[in-house]
Amino acid sequence: MAISMKSAFGKALVGVMGAGLVASVSTSALAAWEPDKQVEFVVPAGTGGGADQMARLMQGIIVKHNLMKQPLVVVNKSGGAGAEGFLSVKNSKGDPYKIIITLSNLFTTPLATGVPFNWKDMTPVAMLALDQFILWTNTEKGYKSAKDYIEAAKAAGPGKFKMGGTGSKQEDQIITVGLEKATGAKFSYIPYKGGGEVAVQLVGNHVDSTVNNPAEAVAQWRAGSLTAQCVFDDVRLPYKTKVTATQSWNDIPTCKEAGVPTDYQMLRGIFMAPGVTADQIAYFNEVFKKMMATPEWKEYMEKGAFSQTVLTGKEFADWLTKAEADHKQLMQEAGFLAK
């Protein structure tokens, strides 16, 4: 028992409890800004989803490697497709103790619901990664390629083929619309609540295809029930380790190669409240830099086949400006804008 008391869990718990004491003693020594109380990490999505997983992994890595002296506390504010979380950050002007992880709802929610916020209402800190999307079909159906599948969908007639996706007027549906535009096929889009559920609906043949993230469908892919048709990016995924018996992420063709030119990636980035100082932004950037260097983070990136594009400062802002314009155009064409 004595040995087990020294277990990692005990240490972690003590670490969290002790952190408050340590920090209150040693603040004044440093010139650069450092948080002197716990930092709230807002997740504008529910527990268990992709953004939530990433936030909790970050929290875990930060605790394990002791990258922050103060605790980082994950808080889910998922109401109104994430609007609740964004508004809480927008309304905390100058508060450096609040950071938020974003997904595509940063752009889609204000456009689709008319809730008043924009990424410019917050302070962009860093893009940590881009999440990929893949066109999946059920292996039993035997479609040889994305082209093959799209042809079948066209032949069946508009609306006969069902595309399952997460949420409504969000990334999955936008990709579906993009795919329809590029190919002329027409799907019935069926919105579900979570990505894992969507993948299983495809295995059960309740829908004909999905555009799940790699992480959401990888289990069924490896089990052979799903086929990865193409990845919605202009270059192939870089990961060459075999994931299934015969294929690696790198073996999946891009949608362009497959003859259905569509691309889309989802932002996984960090924002702070408006009006924070450069020092405060620099502090978090430093923490994330250290975090991204850990083996745990690298492993997570590879497991989920993320695109490891890291941007900060002006480049990040430029990227956001462009992405916002793209979303606006896509959603306008699809008729998704709030009336």
């Binding site: 990692a8 869990f9 972690a12 969290v16 939530d52 992994l57 929290q59 875990g60 890595i61 994950v74």
Partner: peptide
């Protein structure tokens, strides 16, 4: 479970 999850990464 979500709250305690990060504490268990080193286990």
């Amino acid at each position: 479970v979500a709250i305690l999850l990060p504490l268990t990464f080193s286990m």
